[in-house]
């Protein structure tokens, strides 16, 4: 008898009979609440799309940024909002006062290579040196305008700080948010 109780269950009415004729289990109150919820979700989706279009999640107008070192030696154009595993380019422009003995030297903090995933530098530096929490790249200087491009591809989401400067000059510190 006990086994029968465990294995069986009395038949229950599903409720919400229509016209007392067919058991449907309809719940119009629930359905109306659900339609309201659907409208809210689609409104949120629409807002997210507009935000994405503007670049709040990267790859848009609001994501683009540029800054200069206080001494004016470097101008950097970058994306303040990056996406995980998505390539982007940080372009650094050497100003005339950046030249040092026929070369341009650039210090980048290690976060540019590690957290922000610098994959490639174009053009290739003539000399790369490591230390002081970062790297110093040396490029032969031919004159103005002069710029180098750093290809970034962050491996994981987070908030990362980076530093740029011409060795011996003033530093530029900025933050990049990497979204998932």
């Amino acid at each position: 008898m006990a086994m029968t109780d465990v294995k069986t269950k009395p038949v229950e009415d599903l409720g919400h009979k229509v016209d007392d004729a067919i058991s449907v289990g309809e719940d119009l109150d629930f359905q109306e609440r659900w339609w309201k919820f659907e409208n809210i979700v689609w409104s949120i989706f629409a807002v997210l799309l507009v935000m994405d279009f503007l670049g709040v999640f990267g790859r848009g107008v609001l994501a683009k940024a540029q800054a200069s070192t206080p001494d004016g030696a470097l101008l950097v154009k970058y994306e303040r909002i990056e996406r995980t595993l998505t390539p982007s380019v940080m372009r650094i422009y050497f100003q005339p006062n950046a030249a040092q003995g026929g070369t341009y030297k650039l210090y980048v903090s290690s976060s540019v290579v590690q957290e922000l995933g610098n994959q490639r530098i174009a053009p290739e530096p003539q000399i790369s040196a490591v230390g002081d929490g970062g790297y110093v790249y040396t490029f032969p200087a031919l004159g103005q305008p002069a710029s180098v491009s750093l290809s970034l591809e962050p491996a994981s989401p987070g908030i990362y700080h980076f530093t740029l400067r011409v060795p011996g000059g003033q530093s530029l510190e900025r933050t990049i948010v990497v979204v998932p």
């Binding site: 229509v18 016209d19 449907v24 289990g25 309809e26 719940d27 119009l28 629930f30 359905q31 659900w34």
Partner: peptide, 14 residues
């Protein structure tokens, strides 16, 4: 179950 699958809805009655 109602949230995930929804509930039946009568479209035509009599």
């Amino acid at each position: 179950a109602a949230v995930i699958d929804g509930k039946p809805l009568v479209l035509l009655k009599n």
